[in-house]
Amino acid sequence: MKTFIPGLSRRDLFTIGLVILEVVIFSIVSENFLNSSNLRSVLRNATELSLVSIGMTIVILMGGIDISVGSALGVVAIIVGWLIQAEVHPLIIGLVAILVGTTIGFVNGSLITFGRIPDIIATLGMSNILRAAVFGMLGGRWITGLPPVFSPLVQGQYFGIPASIFVIFIFYFVFWALLTFLPIGRHIYATGNNVEAAKLSGIDVRKTRIVGYMLLGSLVGFSSLLYVGRLGSVEITVGIDLPISAIAAVVIGGASVFGGRGSIVGTLAGVFFMAFMKNGLLLLGIPSLWERAVIGFLIIFSVGIDLLINKHQAIAKFLHLKTRQSRVGEA
């Protein structure tokens, strides 16, 4: 899977190629696509999704999934809104946001490892609980008109470059380094590849899982700052399409839903492939309904491609997953 560019797999290059192709096509068919204010808007509106998708990649690499990220972002965003209204120092708000997000991730991870509840069920449960918390915390009144305390993180410009680019670049660099050079990165890949082998080689699989969910949680926590900075309001629908978008980005970016294979660079390409697609469809005046259909098609297409490319590998993984499940059932 190695390519001539270090650190990028063929699948990553494939997704990046798709994004470039997409940009070229939209530039030709829509005169409004390739102008700086449009690109800036696309970028700005994809910032939170980019960060959450890093965490989603980590979780999916371990063979897990988290569908509670939208509700979790909602809960943290409400807390951030309250703290802004109380005029707490932004640094403290930032720390609280990351802390709450990480705690939610810890709870998810613990339910999954110690409770042995399948990832999708545990996070579905959490998603419902947190969504109820969003209802309860807002109490039928939305938070609006927040001062732009965190807006510089998404709206600002430094040296003529939009702030979003810095934020995305820093986070992707840090997490790329973490996954590539630190033991936790290898543990995450190993856990997703083959749990038994990982255990035999002395990896603490439980700890790895929990840390993975905590990393995702911390990214969700930070993203809530960006959300509040960008919208200046928190209403009841906060984050509802986030889980699906993040999972779609990861899958389009080439990560295997069976775990063990994928990269955050691919995911970033997946995020922007979707963002440009939605943008381009709107600029072409294609009705909103098609947006969802197109995204749905892309998800199936991506997974289909993966299965074709890695047919044997995937089938082997799938069988392994089944045996693992039956073993859990006996326990």
């Binding site: 509106n45 959300y227 960008r230 919208l231 309001s233 209403e235 629908t237 906060v238 984050g239 509802i240 399409d241 709107l282 009705p287 909103s288 309904l289 969802r292």
Partner: peptide
């Protein structure tokens, strides 16, 4: 335009 779930975002 229609929004998913009436999402403000």
């Amino acid at each position: 335009r229609y929004t998913q779930g009436g999402s403000s975002e």
